[in-house]
Simulated assay, not measured.
Amino acid sequence: MKNLLTDVAGVRVGHAHDAKLASGTTAIIFDQPAVAAIDVRGGGPGTREDALLDLASTVERVDAIALSGGSAFGIDAGGGVQAWLAEQGRGFRIREAVIPIVPGAIVFDLLNGGNKNWGRFAPYRDLGYAAAVAAGDDFALGSVGAGLGATTATFKGGLGSASAVLANGIKVAAIIVVNAVGSATVGDGPWFWAAPFEDNGEFGGRGLPPKFTQDMLAMRIKGGPAASARENTTIGLVVTDATLTKAQAKRLAMIAHTGFARAIYPVHAPTDGDVLFAAATCEKPVEPLVGLTELGTVAANVVARAIARGVYNATALPFPDALPAWKDRFGG
């Protein structure tokens, strides 16, 4: 176990980013099509192929998920991932036609100091292709891929991942891009809201403060009173090797979204576009009531841990007035 999304067999992750752009893309590739669903909680989401994931829609399985910076421009990243899959002959077949299925979601990182003067066409399709090419079993956390330009209310945001194994042997893992309007930390201190779920000091082992003050509980949001509905969003994916239907994957996404609330304060705001995909590689049976509830419970914990790990591993952008990274202030 690497404490990464790729602990679930048959899942690979790749990053591509541009330091001058201060933005990037992350591709999650399934070796075999995976059952997938989506749950949207934020007030300003940006998604690709979300209607396809509706329970009433015909296609049940996807070939990949694209997560990207770039706001609406970043939706093009899914086209780059799709192009790579097409070269591999991967996709939904209708007689001789093959159509790779690549849902995706984006975060807003257009005002983080990077050079966004890219000319006529944004670079995200090419970044998506490069991320798909780079996909493998190991991948970095923090200010990489779709998390390169991410920020939160108090510290630099980033990309995080975590995994767990249930007592019955089923695995569940998450990958999250943390670009929240709120904060992943308690007040101005080193404590992560996700501290009760931390595993083996994976985000600093600071626990929670000995007591909570009114200042700690005060709302801290990116941009203060001038916060924009387009400047934020936390997006991600939870994957399991359990055998799920599309409806069960939807329920898993809904339960796992609780992890956002355990790790970000405030969350699911009008100024967020919070999106969580859920996917199942369908290798192991799971009891559909209590078993699925337990899977969702652990998935929510894994999502919370991944959010904290994304902020913990981030590095500050090299621009004037850039937010500090958590480690800049509190060490390793």
Rank of each mutant, 00 (worst) to 15 (best):
G10C: 07
N112K: 05
I106R: 05
G160H: 10
W193R: 09
P209I: 10
D241C: 03
G69A: 04
T25Q: 00
S71F: 02
G291V: 12
T271M: 13
A19Y: 11
L237S: 00
V177F: 03
A242H: 03
F139E: 03
A218Y: 06
L217P: 03
A194R: 08
L85A: 05
L166F: 06
F319D: 02
T152S: 08
A122P: 12
T315S: 13
L55Q: 12
V303T: 07
P45I: 08
G24S: 07
L127T: 08
L292P: 05
F197W: 14
D137F: 04
F155K: 07
V181C: 12
G128K: 11
K250F: 12
G204T: 10
D328F: 08
P225D: 06
G291I: 10
G182K: 06
Q248S: 03
E49M: 11
L141P: 00
W193Q: 02
G44N: 13
N301C: 09
M219V: 15
G74S: 06
F92Q: 06
A140E: 15
V165A: 13
V178M: 01
L237F: 01
G128M: 08
G223S: 03
N232L: 01
A253Y: 05
F203A: 00
A304F: 08
V302D: 03
D7W: 12
A253H: 04
G145T: 04
K2P: 12
F121K: 15
R41A: 12
I264C: 05
W191E: 09
A269L: 14
S143H: 00
E87P: 04
S183P: 04
I176Y: 04
I38R: 06
I221R: 12
P209Y: 10
G205Q: 09
P270C: 01
P288W: 10
R48Q: 12
A150I: 02
R120P: 01
I28L: 06
L67N: 11
R251S: 09
K171H: 13
R120K: 14
D199S: 11
Q214A: 15
R93K: 15
A306W: 11
A130Q: 15
N117F: 00
A134N: 15
I101H: 01
A229Q: 11
